[in-house]
Design a protein around this nucleic acid. Structure first.
Length: 215
DNA sequence: AACTCGGGGCA
DNA sequence: TGCCCAGAGTT
C-alpha cells in the first residue's frame, strides 16, 4: 500500500489556497453566540445541515440564551426542531444543558473541555467545535467530513477519530488551526463529498493523495 | 473498539 | 427499501 501521507510542504500549500480562496470561512450553522453555537452543533448530530439551519433559525429567534431556552420549555423546543433527526433526544438534551448553564454557569458557556463534555448531548466533537470556533483554542473537531478528508487527502490518515484528531493537530500549521475546521468541513460538504467527490472542481486536486480521484 | 439510538433525505 | 448524515452514550 503506497504512502498516503501528504508531505508537510503540500499541507502548507493546501491551507494557503484555502485561505486565499476563503479568508474568513464561516460555518453554515446558524449561530450568534457561544450558546447558540453549542446548541446548533448538538442539534446537527446525524442530521442534514439544511434541516438544522432552518430549525435553529426558528429556535434561536425564540430563545437565544440558556435562560430563555429554559423558559421556552422542553415541549416547545421539541416543536421547533421536529423536522430534524433524533429530535426527541435532542430536545431533552438542549433543555437539560440549558438548565445547567443557567444554574451553574450564570448563563454562560464554560471555556473548559471537561465542563463542556459533562453537558448532556455534548461529546468530544461538539466540545472541540465550541473551544475552537467560539473561544479560538487550537482544537480539531473530527466529524464525518473531517475524518473522511483527513484520510482521503492524506492530511492525517487514521482509523479512529481520536487518531485523526491527534494527527491533524500535529501536522496542520498552527496559524491555520483557527480556521482549518471551517475550510475542511465546507470542502467536504460541497466538493470532497462522501458519495461523489467533485474532483474536477477541487482546489487542491494536485496535492491530494486519494487514489480514486474522479471527475 | 464496537454497538445502539432513531428521523429525515435521497438514490 | 437501504444507506448516509456537521455524534453521543453505553457496554
Amino acid at each position: 500500500m503506497p504512502s498516503r501521507l501528504m508531505p508537510k510542504a503540500d499541507i502548507e500549500a493546501l491551507f494557503a489556497r484555502f485561505e486565499a480562496a476563503n479568508p474568513h470561512p464561516q460555518t453554515e450553522l446558524n449561530y450568534t453566540s457561544p450558546f447558540t453555537l453549542l446548541v446548533a452543533v448538538v442539534l446537527s448530530a446525524q442530521a442534514t445541515d439544511a434541516g438544522v439551519n432552518k430549525a435553529t433559525k426558528e429556535l434561536f429567534a425564540a430563545a437565544p440564551t440558556p435562560q430563555a431556552m429554559c423558559a421556552l420549555g422542553e415541549e416547545e423546543i421539541r416543536q421547533h426542531i421536529k423536522t430534524i433527526g433524533l429530535f426527541n433526544t435532542k430536545a431533552k438534551n438542549v433543555f437539560a444543558l440549558s438548565k445547567i448553564l443557567a444554574k451553574d454557569y450564570g448563563g454562560t458557556v464554560p471555556k473548559d473541555r471537561a465542563a463542556l463534555e459533562a453537558l448532556p448531548g455534548v461529546g468530544r466533537k461538539t466540545a472541540n467545535v465550541v473551544l475552537n470556533v467560539a473561544f479560538g483554542e487550537p482544537t480539531m473537531a473530527v466529524d464525518t467530513h473531517i475524518f473522511r478528508l483527513a484520510n482521503r487527502l492524506g492530511l492525517a490518515p487514521g482509523k479512529t477519530p481520536r487518531a485523526v484528531e491527534d494527527g491533524l493537530l500535529k501536522r496542520i500549521p498552527a496559524r491555520y488551526m483557527r480556521h482549518a475546521h471551517h475550510w475542511l468541513i465546507l470542502h467536504g460538504r460541497y466538493i470532497c463529498k462522501a458519495r461523489k467527490p467533485e474532483c474536477a472542481r477541487c482546489l487542491v486536486r494536485d496535492l491530494c493523495r486519494y487514489p480514486d480521484k474522479t471527475g
